[in-house]
């Protein structure tokens, strides 16, 4: 099957019932973290045509013809979020971080100037068991400001 993976045309041959998360990890994309594998924790979040998806709940076959982006994809919004997450320490163990950053990226694309509450709501699809939420929220607001400044 063909898809655009991190902005490159790619041909993959997943098994019919292969999860997208497994397919992507097999490509060496370790930023696709798998934890709960039932769509609850958000660690395996990737962007499909710009929208966040928990890739453990999606068949690889569903991604045919779409544009799939992971944390490994070069992107200015991802970079701004990464920098803000580092500065605000929006993580502890780091396992959930890529999922938060990608969800935040999709959210900021639609909501460039969010309120704090909007950010907290928008990121509730991921679990940070370490409890870095307030720092994650600050990081997203900081990245939003820097992206607005850059735009």
């Amino acid at each position: 099957m063909r898809l655009t993976l991190n902005r490159r045309e790619t041909e993959l041959t997943p098994a019919p019932l292969e999860r997208l998360s497994d397919t992507l990890r097999a490509q060496g994309l370790t930023g696709v973290r798998v934890s709960c594998s039932e769509g609850e924790c958000g660690s395996c979040t990737v962007l499909i045509d710009g929208r966040p998806v928990t890739s453990c709940l999606m068949l690889a076959a569903q991604a045919e013809g779409t544009s799939v982006e992971t944390i490994e994809c070069d992107d200015p919004a991802t970079a701004a979020l990464q920098q803000a997450f580092i500065e605000e320490q929006g993580f502890q163990c780091g396992f959930c971080t890529a999922g938060f950053i990608l969800t935040a990226r999709a959210f900021l694309a639609r909501t460039p100037d969010p309120s704090e509450d909007e950010v907290r709501e928008a990121l509730s699809g991921s679990i940070c068991r370490c409890g870095a939420y307030p720092f994650i929220t600050r990081a997203v607001l900081k990245a939003a400001a820097s992206l607005r400044g850059a735009a």
Binding site: E40, R51, P52, V53, T54, T103, S124
Partner: peptide, 9 residues
């Protein structure tokens, strides 16, 4: 309902 990620699908 559910999570923003699941709502995409």
């Amino acid at each position: 309902m559910c999570t923003v990620q699941t709502r995409t699908l």
